[in-house]
Write a protein that binds this DNA or RNA. Structure first.
Lengths: 202, 202
DNA sequence: GTCTATAGAAGGATAGAC
DNA sequence: GTCTATCCTTCTATAGAC
C-alpha cells in the first residue's frame, strides 16, 4: 500500500524509539523482534528500516541518547551549586533518584543491555558511563580532601552510592507506602552515613 | 552414531548446566541458542533434550539451585553466630560479597534474567529472593529495636545494602588494586556507617 | 512513507538410526 | 547416550509496488 494517510515520518521515528525502549526494557533486547516493535508502532516490520539501519543501532541510539541526557542534566545542575561537597552530594542523590525514576526503561536498558552492544558501541557507551561516575568521584574526592567527608574508600564509595541509588528503580512502584520525597530523604540519610564513616585509620 | 565411547550421562548433565550458566551470563538467556550450548558441551543439540525438557526449564533450574544454595549457606552461617546484630550484619556483608564473587555467573543470571522466566517460575524464584532479603531485614529490625543500629529506614536499608554489595560483582576483577579482604573491610566500613546514621527524628 | 512479499539464516524441538 | 536429519517457526533485512 502507499503511504498511509496522515502518516508522518517524524512521529513514526519517535514512536519507534519509544516502542523499542519500552519493549527492550520489558523483555530484553535479544528477546524482542523487529516485528514486535513494528506491531507496537503500528506499521509493518519493513517500514522500520526507514528509521534505523538495523536492530543493533536502535539499541545503541537509545543508550547513547540516555547517557547524553543524563550527563547534560547533571552537569547543568552541578553548575548551579556552590562549592560545598555536602551540598553537591545531597543534590546528586536527589538528582540521580529522580532522573532514574522518570526513565525507568532507559536506565534498565542502560544497565542490562550493555552486553548486547557491539564491541565498538560498547566502548562508546562505557566512556560516557565512566564520565558520569567520574563526576560523582570528584565530589567525593573533594569532600574527603577538605575534611567534609570521611570516606571508607573514594572509588568504592562512588560505586556503592550509584549501586544503591540505581537500585531504587528495581523496587519503586509509585504506589507504595513512601512518597518520592520521603524516599529521597531516606537515601540522603543513608548516603550521609556512608560518606561520614571512614575513620582516620583509612 | 551410537553412544559415544566414554560418554557419561551424569557428566553431560553437569556440563550442560555449567555451559548454560556460562553462556546465559555472558550473552543473556534470549541471545543464547540451544545449538550454542550443545557446541559448548560437545554434543549435538538434540542430545540436550535428554537432560532438560526445554530451554525455559534450564534457566529456571539454574536460578532455583542458586537461590537454594544461597539460602542454605547463609542460614547455616547465621546459626553459628551469637545474637548481636552488629556481628550478624558484619558477617552478612562478608558472606554476601564472598558468596557472590565466587558465583559471578549465577548471580548475574539471578538478577538479569528474572524477566525471562515464565510467570509461574518467576513466582517461585521471587519467593526465595524475598526470603533471603527477609533474613537481612530481620537483622536490621532487631538491631534497630535494640538500639544497636540507628537506621534511616529498615526496609530501604536492606535494599540499599543488598544493592551495594551485589554491585561488587559488576566491577570486581580479582586483579585490581584491592584484595578481597580489603574490599570486605571497606564495605564493612560503609555498611556500619549506613546502619548507624538515622537520627532519633526518624 | 508504508505496504506486501520474500530471501536467507537461525531458532526450538522431535524422530529414529545406531 | 548421542548422532543425523528434519519439521516448523520465527527472525532480520531487503526489494519493489503503490
Amino acid at each position: 500500500m502507499a503511504r498511509k494517510s496522515g502518516s508522518d515520518g517524524k512521529k513514526t521515528a519517535r514512536e519507534l524509539r519509544e516502542a523499542a525502549t519500552r519493549l527492550f526494557a520489558k523483555y530484553g533486547y535479544a528477546a524482542v523482534s523487529m516485528r514486535q516493535i513494528a506491531t507496537e508502532v503500528g506499521v509493518q516490520a519493513g517500514a522500520l528500516y526507514l528509521y534505523t539501519p538495523d536492530k543493533q543501532t536502535l539499541l545503541y541510539q537509545i543508550m547513547d541518547r540516555h547517557m547524553d541526557d543524563l550527563l547534560k542534566a547533571w552537569r547543568e545542575k552541578l553548575e548551579q551549586l556552590d562549592g560545598d561537597p555536602m551540598t553537591k552530594i545531597e543534590q546528586f542523590v536527589r538528582f540521580h533518584i529522580r532522573f532514574h525514576l522518570n526513565r525507568g526503561d532507559e536506565i534498565f536498558i542502560a544497565y542490562m543491555e550493555l552486553r548486547n552492544l557491539s564491541e565498538e558501541n560498547f566502548d562508546l557507551i562505557e566512556r560516557k558511563r565512566r564520565a558520569y561516575e567520574g563526576l560523582l568521584g570528584e565530589i567525593l574526592k573533594d569532600g574527603n580532601a577538605s575534611g567534609r567527608f570521611s570516606l571508607c574508600d573514594t572509588k568504592l564509595s562512588s560505586y556503592a552510592i550509584i549501586a544503591m541509588l540505581t537500585g531504587v528503580s528495581t523496587w519503586y512502584k509509585g504506589d507504595g507506602r513512601l512518597s518520592l520525597d520521603k524516599i529521597e530523604e531516606i537515601y540522603l540519610c543513608m548516603v550521609r552515613g556512608l560518606v561520614s564513616q571512614g575513620g582516620p585509620k583509612r
